[in-house]
């Protein structure tokens, strides 16, 4: 499956099928990120139910604390 992640085209491995899997595969902490799936923000509680499809556009912004 191929998706657009933060504007870049990405080929996903077969075991990545949901937003939750995607965050895990990039080692991103779910509590402190905002995810947009085809222009709609995904509520934090819905990451596991939200399945990905070919051509989906995903934006992930992850809070960082340094400075």
């Amino acid at each position: 499956m191929n998706i657009h992640l933060n504007g870049k085209s990405i080929d996903l491995p077969g075991n990545v099928t949901t937003v939750s899997d995607l965050l895990d595969s990039y080692d991103i902490k779910k509590k402190i990120s905002v995810v947009e799936h085809n222009k709609e923000i995904v509520p934090k509680g819905n990451y596991e139910q939200t399945t990905l499809a070919d051509g989906d556009r995903i934006e992930i912004v992850h809070f960082v604390g340094g400075g």
Binding site: K29, K31, I32, V34, F63, G65, G66
Partner: peptide, 23 residues
């Protein structure tokens, strides 16, 4: 509104490093 709890396990500049251009 965006972060409902204090992130405790985040990376810091001391532990994960940082480069000037990111600043």
């Amino acid at each position: 509104c965006l972060i409902d709890q204090l992130p405790q396990d985040g990376e810091t500049c001391e532990t994960a490093g940082i480069i000037g251009p990111a600043v």
